[in-house]
Amino acid sequence: MNGLQWLGASALGFFRRLGRGHLFFLDTLVALPANWLRPRLIVQQTYAIGVLSMIIIVVSGLFVGMVLALQGYNTLVDFGAEESLGVVVALSLVRELGPVVAALLFAGRAGSALTAEIGLMKATEQLSGMEMMAVNPISRVIAPRFWGSFLSMPLLAAVFSAVGVLGGYFVGVGLLGVDEGAFWSQMRDKVDFHDDVMNGVIKSIVFGVVAGWIALFEGYDAVPTSEGVSRATTRTVVHTSLAVLGLDFILTALMFGE
């Protein structure tokens, strides 16, 4: 009987949390437009979320591109097709690795920080204090951070892909001796602006919304103790990563399905 009760309680708890998450998302969406009356808040959050994530994004993008070029070269050279190295590097970065890896790094670097910050605000009753002063914490605290991650994610993913292509160029052309003209011209011939680049951008926008939503909701919904905040931070990273990978499969199936 106790087991049955536990099952029911956890199922109810799951759906309650799901409902709270969606109501929270709706509240945030309603609060979003008014934020442009005070753009300074958005700029500050874009700095904390986007600019401070640049280093990890640039370094990871560079190395991911370099590794792609090394591995791709080893396979392609067997078929005498090493001129296609640019295509391999650019397509895998622009379509998949750019948006996905940037979103995973974003969850670890910026998402966890967002959750911890808001969870601590809740634990120290700053959010309740705001409500007491008739300041809506959703529009003052949550919405600017949501804007920050919504705006930063596509830019970070684009930087990741571009730096990765440059890394692939350094290794492929500089180190392995692939012909420079063929590297760029094959890439330009095979990578389509609408089908590849724009779909990558759409992916990263979706990931930005999801990563921001999960991180902010976990913080907002955290149990207001130090243990609760730490668990919420862990959940942010895990759930965001799972959501990004799952969504990436769905989006890929929709975009490149035929």
Binding site: V94, P154, D196, G200
Partner: peptide
């Protein structure tokens, strides 16, 4: 940051695709 992101997008659209 925004300029770097837009420059990266521009590079992806003009140089890569």
């Amino acid at each position: 940051f925004v300029a770097a992101g837009l420059a990266a997008l521009l590079m992806l659209s003009l140089q890569v695709s």
